[in-house]
Computed example of a mutant assay.
Amino acid sequence: MKTVKICQWNTLADTLSGAFPQVNKQFLSWNHRSQLISQYIKNNNCDIYCFEEVDHPEFFETILQDHHFIFQKKQHNNDGILIAYKKTFKLQSVNIIPYLENNKVSNQFFIKVDFLDFILIATHLKAKTEFENIRRTQLEQLNKYLQENKIILCGDFNTQPQLEAVSNFMEISGMKCTNITIPTTSKNRGKLETNIKDYIFYKGVQLKQSQVGPTEGVQLDENGLPSEKFPSDHIFLIGEFDI
């Protein structure tokens, strides 16, 4: 048995960072945000990182030089999902699987990584409130790939735990979650919205400890995130597991 420390984080794509009118433009610049992202990554020193909304994959490679990388861009966007895992991990296979929407390949997908000891999956579900039914369908499709014994699933699900997509998924999959109480997003695009949209699910492994954001917490105000001291509108999650 070994302990694996995993980080889940939607780091906010540079190309999408202009959509926060209440936030000082200086705090939205990639130069400002990338320095903070680098600092938080180095402070937490995880074995595996699952990042969403990545449009500067080369940046992550420069600060995680003891990791291997899996990067897949969305079909219709500049950003994608990046998984970074320490070079000591033994990789068996990688599968990038698109979700189907109306029997067609959608813009969303998940990455299934088979390590020697367990399976890791990272995903980013369809956004916007009105697409809850599509997110439920996406998670039902994903559940078909969750039959193995030891699985950790990370992602930005774009929906809250009490709503249909996640509540149905937890019931049918039998997976546990590291956090369903502490908010993981805070944004103000005319109205402040603070809620949970990011998750680390697991089964067949033992959760040792978990945290939401840095140990000193993230300061939230009426402007939402990003802020001077935090680089994304999503707060990162960390889980430590005995595999």
Rank of each mutant, 00 (worst) to 15 (best):
I243K: 05
L146V: 11
G174I: 10
Q26H: 14
T11H: 04
T159H: 05
D117R: 04
F27G: 13
Q147W: 02
S38M: 08
E140C: 04
E58K: 09
Q39Y: 14
R33C: 10
D14K: 13
P57Q: 00
I151R: 03
W30P: 05
K229F: 15
Y99R: 04
D156N: 10
F51P: 01
T178E: 04
N179S: 07
V212C: 00
V105L: 10
K74Y: 11
I238S: 01
N78K: 14
N158E: 03
L82F: 02
Y40T: 02
K229L: 13
E193N: 13
F60H: 03
E53R: 04
G18L: 13
G174Q: 10
F157W: 11
I6R: 00
F51W: 06
I243P: 05
L16C: 09
T178K: 04
L139D: 02
D79C: 04
T181M: 10
E101M: 10
K2P: 05
I235P: 01
E53K: 05
N133A: 08
Y202G: 00
H76V: 05
L163E: 15
E193I: 07
G224D: 03
A19V: 01
T3I: 10
I200Y: 00
W9G: 01
L192K: 13
T11E: 01
I97M: 05
S29F: 10
N31K: 13
Q35P: 00
L142K: 02
D66T: 11
H67L: 10
S232K: 02
Q211H: 07
I111S: 12
D242C: 06
S38D: 09
I48L: 08
G155D: 06
I196T: 00
Q162W: 14
R33L: 11
D117V: 00
L192C: 05
V4L: 11
T184M: 06
G18H: 12
V94N: 07
S210L: 00
N103R: 14
H234K: 03
R135F: 12
Q206E: 12
L12I: 12
V105D: 14
S93H: 11
L163G: 00
K90L: 03
I96H: 06
L116K: 14
I6L: 08
F241A: 08
I182L: 01
Y85G: 01
N95M: 09
L16Y: 12
T15S: 15
K203T: 04
I238D: 02
I83H: 07
N149K: 15
K2R: 14
I134H: 07
H67Y: 09
Y85R: 09
Q8T: 08
L16A: 11
F230A: 01
I37P: 01
E222T: 03
L207G: 04
T185E: 10
M1A: 13
K229W: 09
L116F: 11
Q108C: 15
F236Y: 15
P161G: 04
H124L: 12
I83L: 10
Q8N: 15
Q108D: 15
